[in-house]
Design a binder for these strands. Structure first.
Lengths: 343, 343
DNA sequence: TTTGGAATGGCAATCGATTGCATGAATTTA
DNA sequence: TAAATTCATGCAATCGATTGCCATTCCAAA
């Protein structure tokens, strides 16, 4: 390991017989240096292959051009897409990304936040874990003066920048679609209601029913069916009711919709003629199942880019105190075979 | 933004009427402090909610407890799984992860490496982009004394730590399986041959044919068919041959296998009876297609953990100059419907 | 000729934590 | 009792970059 000593501004200064101050000013394009020396410094810096020591710079400046991202799971399609979007946009501005996963655990989430704060990130982007009810750790971030942007799963009560989907609207459109296809007894698989996205989706479901004067049948609303397994279990229960549903809206995820489909297959129930299935998130696999699954696309990569750009905008007019900004992205219903009852 | 000033070791020192040196020693559990003062410092630090300024520490120490990861695409299942695995293992050791994506571009890859080097990461983990033939930018990393770990797609000629899959073996097993199922004219969709993983998979294919004394039919080997679209195009070409293949090994990815399947469906060719299909990577969707696709699992999350642990091992015995270590993970053939010709 | 101001650039402190060396006290050994 | 150790702590430099303040030079206006 022959670690040759890195070139510093002092090396440049020495070579040019000036002080480090001037070198620094030249490199930062300050107008407190002569144009000639500025060029000289730039030229020498290039020659010596000088690289600014960001560690020193960060310490001095108190900022790191780094954004911390906390998601429940990195390897979940929606989240990895959002991250890809963020990376794409931040990269262009010379920002770095530190990624943490909370594994849906409140404890780990808190630790992630602490780590990121210790790293002095300039901004934290988070989609909260399912366990996180109390958001004091997020409040801390704000108190420390660090920018906080929530996305997708957000804590409503915290006044932060937010980038969300219009879950209610999407859900309403989805259920409306089911009704228009002629489904009459529509079941809802709902997610943990402490997360607002799942509450909103439920609201959309209820509103759609109301719009068409359909009754809300409580036995058709299943709590906490947000994994493939839970979705399957819920479906078994639903389909063995005296009056089973003729459609199931897995408002939690495409994975639970997949559980529904599996059970339907196993019970030889025809989809979509006997049972309509609708998922959420437009996971890649939804167009590959037989039948393909109708679902809702959240424009996840785009969401990531929006988050990044929101941050940069805020940075630019940081003096102006804006009311907490919320950007809502309208998701799109992707109609596929699993709900095409009418031909 | 009421940024209360952070507590530093000087604040603790002042409060206890000692110097910052002693505080630092106490916090670092040095044995150059009295046990009593050490405890006192620890207690006061906790009371004042002291957090070490890692920026300052990093500058002084010249290391950052940060690992940089460069992958072609964050939101590709294999890579996001590997990242998840790395995160999981590094998190426990208090390390951070900076993630970059090269987007399969050599230019971007170089920029990523530079960024990470500027950030003084302790280690760079990379799976090279398809465009990267010349690896001088990686050599640079080594020259600067930064640990470099390659995985999956590796530059053979660079003497670094490597974590790879035994592609040749896996490929051979896959083709052997096809032969044993009774397929006789087995086509190969191969990837860009500048990447060693694709060369190895081809070698495996050739070896399997040889083992069974089957001829290599050059028109059944299609170059550069590594996306869904290219896989589909290749399939159309193959199936319109005077003597078409009875099986296609999409050695590049499950996506190209998906392209094969699509074309087979469109041409009303029965899978697996008339055409066997075999993919690579065990993407989640492969068990959801009709028929489900036989593929090769790479234990991606586990691969990530292996990478992280390899780094930590190396750290511990850094004095010992070990010959560049290569860890090869044996992938597993997942046999599904798309190749079950015999019943 | 004098004065005022702009343009340059140097000095030194600062951002916090770490650490080699020195000092002085306490303890042990001869 | 004197010399030799050990132990605890302080001092000051260091890691590089940044920046407020001051000093000098030079030119233009009065």
């Amino acid at each position: 390991m022959k670690t040759k000593k890195r070139i510093t501004i002092y090396d440049i200064a020495e070579k040019l017989n000036i002080t480090a101050s001037s070198v620094s000013r030249a490199l930062n394009n300050s107008n407190h240096v002569n144009e000639a020396t500025k060029n000289l410094v730039l030229k020498t810096a290039a020659e010596l292959n000088y690289k600014r020591n960001v560690l020193a710079s960060n310490l001095r400046m108190g900022k790191t051009k780094t954004i911390g991202v906390v998601v429940p799971r990195i390897n979940q399609n929606f989240f990895s897409n959002v991250i890809a979007g963020i990376e794409d946009a931040t990269y262009q501005k010379g920002y770095n990304l530190i990624i943490c996963q909370s594994n849906e655990s409140r404890d780990k989430e808190i630790k992630c936040i602490n780590t990121l704060m210790n790293q002095h990130v300039d901004c934290i982007v988070i989609s909260v874990s399912v366990e996180s009810d109390d958001h004091s750790h997020l409040k801390n971030v704000l108190d420390q003066g660090v920018q906080l942007i929530q996305f997708d799963r957000v804590a409503d009560e915290l006044e932060t920048l937010k980038v969300i989907n219009d879950n209610e609207q999407a859900s309403m459109e989805a259920v409306t679609h089911l009704i228009e296809q002629g489904y009459k007894r529509i079941a809802l698989l709902e997610g943990p209601q402490n997360l607002n996205i799942f509450r909103q989706r439920k609201t959309g479901y209820l509103k759609a029913l109301k719009n068409f004067n359909l009754p809300v049948i409580s036995e058709l609303v299943i709590e906490n069916a947000w994994t493939k397994e839970l979705g399957a279990a819920a479906t078994r229960k639903l389909l063995s009711l005296p009056e089973p549903p003729d459609a199931i809206f897995a408002s939690t995820s495409d994975f639970s919709a997949l559980g529904v489909l599996d059970v339907a297959h196993a019970m030889h129930i025809k989809v979509p003629s006997e049972l309509g299935i609708l998922g959420y998130a437009n996971e890649p696999f939804t167009e590959l199942t037989t039948p393909s699954i109708t679902t809702i696309d959240q424009f996840s990569v785009n969401m990531g880019k929006t988050i990044a750009n929101l941050y940069f905008e805020e940075m630019e007019n940081k003096e102006v105190v804006v009311t907490p900004k919320v950007i809502s992205i309208k998701p799109e219903l992707i109609i596929r075979a699993s709900t095409r009852k009418k031909r």
